[in-house]
Nucleic acid binder design. Structure first.
Lengths: 241, 241
DNA sequence: AAAGTGGTTTGATATATGTCAAAAATCGTG
DNA sequence: CACGATTTTTGACATATATCAAACCACTTT
């Protein structure tokens, strides 16, 4: 396994986690919450560019991101790479590995991160006993499918600037859901990584950023982004080609 | 709901279905198989261009395709469309709807089809009682995630001819898994639908077909395809740009 | 503070794919 | 079988994005 030794081990019950509303189903009974604490085991820390797992690793656990953010990527033998997502606190990562018991992509920390390991056997066992948890797990997997299909739409039928607008609006909305600013944030990923995610070359990403700035939709200075006109960005999407 | 009245209703136990090896987990006990037959209810027939479900429909059931094939598509309000997949016998369809209890895409029959309805409540109940079934359901969902991410790679970083090669090889392999010819088959979808799936215009798809033919990799006459050189098609993928 | 390194921006140019158009082939239907 | 409607093919041309290159900037290391 590619996990570094846990830098600090905190026994951290899910029931008292401040991210519970993102990770867990609502409406669990006290009894169910207590049961669920069987699950939460250890938190692990990662530094920028550490691997949480690698493609080919044996699958044992899903991971809940407690803080920080990751990218997931597929590396094709011929050198092609595709970033398949950027994940942040409260999101569950590793779902692709369930199908074959082998991780199908790499997960790489974009900054300092803390992650909760969720042993999958245990999760399945608990979800047999707690129907709400079962349903929740299904919803999380289904949500990932919907997300991926949204990206297929983006990659299959949107132009460069539309893709970047979708990307920025999505980031904005997820940050807001975490109580952070929807309009001012630091990008944790490079132009190259954004390009890989959006199916564009890094120069094209950079030009699109510059163009948005010249249109007064955003201010951007390298990785610092301020959205000036959310509605204007939205409007980019309606210009069908 | 958009389902037509079942044209014929056959009570058809999964345990005796010839597609069981595609739909069901291996190694179920006789007892478990018997339980599973609680699930299988009714088969429904569809004709070409019938909707199995539409985006926005209330979610109640997954569907197992018994015969025929479907496309799934997202229609964006601005008229953009994206075909997100082509599904054939033995495949399970509707997973995207679990996340919100509302179908997120349309499923349209590409030919005459027969479909088994799998009420999702029942499926969850059974999968709490049959751990192998639970695991199987998880694997099916995870497989869909992996599939979608493969398409992201295709859309994000492959050229037109590579995309078509991937498409043809994938079809070939799935047909072979169903005991059909890996090298001779009828396409059930139009150039436009293939293009939508691959993020290309129909003219580009048509040109790529013609080019493969001129290279003696395939014979293609409208919707009749014969693959002459499987290895040659594979080799298309290694020409990194 | 200087030097090095990697990331970013911008410009000039090339190219793959899109667009538009017309003809050919195929399919469905009376 | 013929008609119209639809799909497919092919060509000529347009364009969005990629490629190549250089300068610039920001961060790390010494």
């Amino acid at each position: 396994m590619s996990l570094p030794a846990p830098i600090y081990q905190l026994h951290s019950p899910c029931s008292s986690c401040n991210l519970a509303e993102l990770c867990l189903p609502a409406d669990l009974s006290a009894h169910e919450l207590r049961k669920l604490d069987e699950l939460s085991t250890v938190k692990r820390s990662f530094s920028r560019s550490d691997y949480l797992y690698r493609s080919g690793d044996k699958f044992r656990s899903l991971f809940a991101i407690h803080s920080g953010s990751f990218k997931t990527q597929i590396l094709h033998e011929d050198g092609r790479e595709q970033v398949t997502g950027f994940q942040m606190a409260g999101e569950i990562i590793g779902l692709d590995a369930i199908s074959t018991d082998i991780h199908a992509c790499d997960a790489v920390a974009l900054e300092s991160c803390v992650v909760c390991e969720l042993p999958f056997n245990k999760l399945e066992e608990l979800s047999r006993e707690i129907p709400l948890l079962q349903r929740h797990l299904h919803k999380i997997m289904s949500r990932e499918i919907v997300r991926d299909q949204g990206i297929m739409l983006l990659l299959g039928s949107m132009r460069a600037e539309e893709r970047l607008a979708v990307f920025l609006l999505n980031l904005s909305q997820r940050l807001a859901a975490r109580g952070l600013s929807a309009t001012q944030f630091q990008l944790r990923m490079s132009r190259h990584e954004i390009g890989s995610y959006l199916g564009l070359k890094l120069e094209t990403v950079s030009r699109a950023f510059s163009h948005f700035q010249s249109e007064r939709l955003i201010n951007v200075k390298v990785r610092t982004v301020e959205i000036l006109d959310l509605a204007g960005l939205q409007a980019c999407l309606n210009n069908t080609r």
